[in-house]
Amino acid sequence: MNGSDRIGWWYTLFALVPCFAYMITLSLAPGLLATPIGPATRVTLGLVLGLALAALLFVLAAAYTWQINRKERG
């Protein structure tokens, strides 16, 4: 396994753990995800965490691409 493979596996881990955690929380604790994030809002934790997951996946993708492409170009 080369260096970029190792980095790839770490990034995969950072991405997949939150994905699985979110999906499993949906089934185990739906009530938790239905909790509003504040007293004066209808926005729930499930909605915020879902969008945060989408944002996280893009940030990880951008960071990985920048890091590995920069390394490759020397």
Binding site: I7, G8, W9, Y11, T12, A15, L16, C19, L53, L57, L60, A61, Y64, T65
Partner: peptide, 8 residues
């Protein structure tokens, strides 16, 4: 969520 595996 399929993209991390594809990219990384």
């Amino acid at each position: 969520i399929g993209w991390p595996v594809l990219l990384f």
